[in-house]
Write a protein that binds this DNA or RNA. Structure first.
Length: 110
DNA sequence: GCCCTGACGGGAT
DNA sequence: TATCCCGCCAGGG
């Protein structure tokens, strides 16, 4: 549809349930743009200006590192949000990343 | 209208 | 197995 590329990314990210995290690449692939993982992060940054809530804190890189924490009001906000959902975070990295990882996306029709 | 950057990822060395 | 480099798309200067 004409929904912007970002809008699709937001929909995909909203599919991530609480207590789970996903990677930029997984989201990119979910929106039909595998490889455009960078664009996903860009969309997340802009998501703060979006009306709908987007759990951007549930999106980390493939290493499970909170690379986007600096985009939050406070550098610890992202980590606190994750821990608040039951996700263990240490040194800005998701501890049980492999266990909380979630990629069962509902492929978005373009 | 061109060039560079940017919350990443995967392939090649 | 670890590290480096290039490619993805879009927005801003």
């Amino acid at each position: 549809m004409d929904e912007g590329f970002f809008t699709r990314v937001y929909e995909a990210v909203r599919q991530v349930p609480s207590g789970r995290v996903t990677s930029y690449g997984a989201v990119a692939a979910a929106v039909g743009a595998p490889g455009a993982s960078r664009m996903v992060g860009w969309a997340m940054n802009k998501s703060f200006s979006q009306p709908g809530f987007v759990p951007a804190h549930r999106v980390v890189n493939r290493s499970g590192m909170l690379t986007g924490k600096h985009a939050f009001p406070n550098a610890d906000t992202m980590q606190e949000l994750l821990k608040s959902e039951g996700i263990e975070v240490e040194e800005d990295v998701v501890v049980n990343f492999k266990e909380v990882f979630w990629d069962d996306f509902n492929l978005i029709n373009s």
